[in-house]
């Protein structure tokens, strides 16, 4: 028995080690190579250098693409947050005809492949005679982000009792005052988390941006275009490392905020 248990434990540890290796090894290598003093991405490592990071700061096209991505990210997240929050409130707080249908439709972008969505939006924009530009990318990102925002905020709204809002109205608050003084403050952690997760999704997103960006590049699209030039590869690698680290930090922050919110709701009220 004891031997079997030991074997099982080793098997578990091995499985975990493999998982960690496949998940994190590439990321780790990315960071290692970003400091490697060679244009060829291969072992053995040649030497330590900050040259690629230095070059990164000089590459104007690249900096422009970062600016574009930040712009699209903020725009898409702000709009997604507004629309997704409204949808969440509608679903969680109102009974209306077609509520279930609405929920299914609003969640649909979660299961539609981005390629399909990208082509569809491309056709739509050209049919409407809309020129492709950064804001068409932002629209695409809003489509994919709204369901996430909606689900994150809806989960929060489900976490506190609807009768807190009734209590506010009972005390004389109009619907609007109730929204701004009770509903939104109580949802704040979820709103921030939803915004940050939208932002990272939008910032990293390649497929839709590739279809919808027009002449301006967002960062992922620019990075991909650089892969054709072998000499530019280390630059792409170091940039990818930066994006990686920033993305992880933002996601950690958003998760932390979400947990603060969940914790606060647990200690609230009775039971």
């Amino acid at each position: 028995m004891a031997e079997a248990r030991v074997a099982a434990r080793w098997a578990g540890a091995g499985y975990y080690a493999l998982l960690a290796l496949f998940l994190y090894m590439p990321i780790f290598l990315l960071i290692v190579f970003s400091f490697n003093d060679s244009v060829i991405l291969a072992f053995p490592l040649k030497g330590f250098t900050l040259e690629w990071y230095h070059e990164l700061l000089q590459a104007e096209e690249l900096l422009a693409s970062i600016k574009n991505s930040l712009l699209v990210g903020f725009l898409a997240s702000a709009v997604s947050l507004a629309l997704g929050t409204l949808a969440a409130i509608a679903i969680m707080r109102f009974r209306f005809r077609g509520r279930d249908t609405f929920l299914s439709f609003a969640s649909l972008p979660l299961v539609i492949p981005y390629v399909v969505l990208g082509v569809a939006l491309l056709i739509l924009f050209s049919a409407l005679g809309i020129d492709l530009y950064l804001w068409t990318v932002a629209i695409g990102h809003v489509v994919i982000n709204v369901p996430y925002v909606m689900l994150i905020v809806a989960a929060r709204l489900a976490g506190f009792q609807a009768n807190l809002e009734e209590a506010a109205m009972d005390l004389g608050a109009t619907y609007w005052v109730t929204l701004t003084k009770v509903t939104l403050p109580l949802s704040a952690p979820a709103l921030v988390a939803a915004f940050l997760s939208s932002f990272t999704t939008s910032f990293d997103e390649f497929t839709l941006a590739f279809f919808l960006a027009g002449t301006q590049n967002t960062l992922p699209v620019y990075l991909y275009s650089q892969l054709r030039f072998p000499s530019r590869l280390p630059l792409a690698v170091s940039l990818a490392a930066v994006v990686m680290v920033v993305s992880i930090l933002i996601l950690l922050l958003s998760e932390w905020l979400r947990r603060i919110g969940a914790g606060a709701s647990k200690t609230k009220g009775i039971k």
């Binding site: 009768n163 209590a167 506010a168 009972d170 009770v182 200690t267 609230k268």
Partner: peptide, 13 residues
């Protein structure tokens, strides 16, 4: 009118 709710409904924030 004002209401005292069954689960009190105090604002946690």
């Amino acid at each position: 009118v004002n209401t005292v709710f069954q689960n009190y409904a105090l604002f946690p924030h």
